[in-house]
């Protein structure tokens, strides 16, 4: 391993840590500087529910809430306390599901989001690039132009519209798929077929809505990249030498055209993540997005912060992973 390779890794890791640190700090600061006081808001909500409150009780409630949110003491003290809690895995209790800790809520939601996101990101990246490569390589063929037109039409559709259309079409009008949830109610997690099939049936529409849009984007990018690589001298040279079409397409064209798409994946992860959050809400899929929506709806500050922090960490780590894997595909980065 050369020192440039180590420097490459060190650089990415430091960058990732920095991004996470800044992101979490902003998450810490936003509620503290936002015009709505979370304590005030929570008290108002409690009063609106019609409970009679003695002014003393209100004061005590305020104090308790302030402490619970970690809003007592100076900003510096709060910040240190915040990091201490975070590093020991304590994000405080959730207000909407009191006294459940935020951490445990996130723990049950995270796998759903991670699963949905990972699977649909991988599928759309693979399918989009494969189709884009074929379309770029056989650019003047009819089918490639048809796929191109479909991709162009799909790509600009917002995630929530796609999700909504699929839901209405395939869960209400033609009810082939369930309208929401992650598995049929009452099923115990197991590796049996009943559980797995229920899981797949529930995940299908949310995943499809993410994949359809994702495929369009990767397809368009890849097709352009491939048309450029096809015109490279080394492709012409290999063609003239009689190297088989198959080898040229995979080893000469695709491998080179994919490089920017790998970097592109790292840049798109954040966007896909946001898309997944919206999609989850439309399909009542019990992941982080659904959790976030409920947290916003009920004004559950600690839960909002918890979801935000996990999003930042998750997206940053995914980007780091892709960045670290990049030299495996491009020999020019590894040594030099």
């Amino acid at each position: 391993m050369s020192s440039t390779f180590l420097r490459y890794i060190a650089q990415r890791v430091v960058q990732c840590i920095l991004v996470i640190f800044i992101g979490i700090t902003i998450t810490f600061l936003v509620p503290r500087f936002s015009p709505t006081d979370p304590v005030e808001a929570a008290v108002n909500r409690a009063m609106m529910m019609g409970q009679y409150s003695h002014p003393d009780a209100v004061r005590m409630m305020k104090e308790a809430l302030t402490k619970m949110y970690g809003l007592d003491g100076t900003l510096g003290q709060q910040y240190i306390r915040f990091w201490k809690g975070l590093l020991s895995g304590d994000l405080g209790p959730s207000l909407s599901s009191f006294p459940k800790p935020v951490m445990s809520l996130i723990r049950t939601s995270l796998p759903w989001t991670a699963g949905l996101l990972l699977v649909s990101a991988i599928i759309s990246w693979t399918v989009g690039n494969l189709l884009g490569c074929l379309a770029g390589y056989f650019g003047n063929q009819r089918w490639s132009q048809v796929i191109g037109m479909i991709a162009m039409a799909l790509h600009p559709i917002p995630y929530y519209i796609m999700a909504f259309v699929l839901l209405v079409a395939l869960a209400y009008v033609i009810p082939v798929f369930p309208i929401g949830g992650a598995v049929d109610i009452g099923l115990k997690p197991s590796l049996g077929w009943i559980y797995i099939s229920s899981l797949l049936r529930h995940a299908f529409l949310p995943a499809l809505s993410l994949v359809l849009i994702g495929v369009g984007g990767w397809f368009i990018g890849m097709r352009t990249l491939v048309t450029n690589v096809v015109a490279e001298d080394y492709v012409t040279y290999a063609k003239y030498a009689g190297v088989s079409d198959r080898t040229i397409m995979y080893q000469y064209v695709m491998k080179n055209a994919l490089l920017p798409q790998i970097t592109g994946l790292a840049m798109q992860i954040g966007l896909i993540f946001n898309g997944a959050l919206i999609t989850e809400y439309v399909f009542s899929y019990p992941g982080l997005g659904y959790l976030a929506y409920n947290a916003i709806f009920t004004g559950d500050y600690s839960l909002i912060m918890g979801v935000a922090i996990f999003s930042i960490v998750g997206v940053s780590l995914a980007v780091l992973l892709i960045d670290l894997a990049y030299p495996l595909f491009d020999p020019r980065v590894k040594y030099q």
Binding site: Y234, Y237, A238, Q251, Y252, K255, N256, D330, P331, R332
Partner: peptide, 16 residues
């Protein structure tokens, strides 16, 4: 630019 940047020369010899 006649050589594939992501392929070892041996592989290119093999292809040709």
């Amino acid at each position: 630019s006649l050589l594939n940047p992501v392929r070892k020369i041996r592989k290119t010899f093999w292809d040709f």
